[in-house]
Design a protein around this nucleic acid. Structure first.
Lengths: 252, 252
DNA sequence: AGTGCTTATCGTCAGGAAGACGACTATGAT
DNA sequence: ATCATAGTCGTCTTCCTGACGATAAGCACT
């Protein structure tokens, strides 16, 4: 097929973000309220158009910074504060996914430590952290009595895919540390796993597993009692990114 | 940000295919020769523009059928012959990846049993199965003395990502059966793992593992001696898609 | 028919990882 | 002082895996 500029249809390309964090022992995602049609007033994932001279990862990092103030954790400069993990998730291109025009959205997954409060153009009522089950369930009412509608566009599917990616990826990688502050305890890391998987883990076996995996955790020497009880050692994330053998998610 | 049709730049969207198969004990990918600039005469991954009314998966399945004659294995109609596995791989959108214009390519990964011969518009010299190491190595000469140049565009990166996806995914899923014909023996399945991972596996432990994993293999009752030696039982792929515990890839 | 070669299949054994769970330690709250 | 809370170390049993011996059942020779 020869090259013919008129032979292909034009598309709009956007990035949408699944931004996950752990708050109050549950896995939460960032949602923003849509200010204009279609789906005006409904909750949606943050996102926006990819600019003409921008790579997809750059666009996702820019949107993430605009919505949350988070910087992407640069693998080259590890021990950086407030750094989030960002990776491409999948691309959604159903011809009817946006009623206005043909839009292909490259979804990205971001994992971040617990943050003070979201901001979306300075208006706090238009952005919030919501438990993922709340965003994914049809109907019902939110914590503040607000009626829940499904997320706009195909964002429920995107969110579900992002959550599933995160749930499976913390099994065999050290990604769970992306939900933790730079220094954290074994118990805090365990509570991340418990929140993401919605399970209870045995503290003793978990401690043995994570401290016994070479390169996963590096002790910093400090201790903390911020969780109450006996002081716990503080750790940083080690250099290992792949866990072998993996963490096992309890069935059911 | 209000909706403004002129506010976003137009993109071309394509699908590129990493089609993998196992031939003569090595992992091979489908490559096509480019007939026009840029990269004229160089090898590339098959692919093409997404049409205006087409889903991304549809476009990938159409391209796959055009290049190989393969039908995508429909999960709804399992025991189908000549069915290939097709899944989305990742999306590549560097602004400079295509010198002509801004192109975003949604790469897909296809796994197929060994096929007779590739066809690309009927011209056999413009399509071939090549071992992935041959396509990924820089310089050197191919099997027929033809000088090897790197794949066109960023296709070497896409191929490398696809191969890595396949290598890791057969660890924890039953995907390796997609490289096998509808009925196959344990030894044939083992040779798939050995080719994809480039390792040697113990036949006895492999046999114990795969026959002991519930839902992985279903005996059909038949036997075959097509590999020589003692007749082997024939199996079909069982319903299980996730292997728990996974197959372990030997380190190094 | 017998020998050798090939592949398939079953069995045994030792080492390691993980789940269940007891015991002890070190803090803050009452 | 006592209790509640979390963290940390051990033990025991069970399961899985890797290493490898042994047998089975075809084919190609002689």
């Amino acid at each position: 097929m020869p090259y013919d500029p008129s032979a292909f249809p034009p598309f709009a390309v956007t990035v949408d973000l699944v931004v996950l964090t752990v708050r109050r022992h549950s896995l939460c995602a960032l949602a923003v309220r849509r200010g204009e049609p279609p789906f005006q007033g409904r909750w949606a994932l943050p996102g926006g158009f990819v600019r003409a001279d921008e790579d997809l990862a750059q666009a996702a990092a820019r949107e993430l910074a605009e919505e949350t103030g988070l910087c992407v954790h640069d693998p080259a400069a590890p021990a950086q504060d407030n750094g989030a993990h960002l990776e491409q998730l999948a691309t959604y291109g159903d011809p009817k996914r946006d009623p206005r025009m043909r839009v292909v959205s490259v979804a990205h997954l971001a994992l971040a430590p617990d943050l003070p409060a979201p901001r979306a153009g300075g208006d706090a009522s238009n952005a919030r952290w919501a438990p993922v089950e709340e965003l994914l369930e049809q109907g019902g009412y939110g914590r503040d009595g607000e009626p829940l509608a499904p997320l706009a566009f195909d964002h429920a599917q995107i969110l579900a895919d992002g959550v599933e990616r995160a749930r499976s990826k913390i099994e065999y990688s050290s990604l769970a540390t992306a939900f933790c502050p730079p220094e954290f305890t074994v118990g805090e890391l365990r509570r991340v796993y418990e929140a993401v998987w919605s399970v209870a883990l045995d503290p003793r076996n978990f401690h043995r597993k994570v401290t016994g995996t070479p390169g996963f955790l590096v002790p910093t020497g400090g201790t903390t009692t911020r969780q109450g009880g006996r002081p716990a050692q503080l750790f940083r994330a080690g250099g290992a990114t792949l866990l072998n053998p993996p963490m096992l998610r309890p069935e059911v």
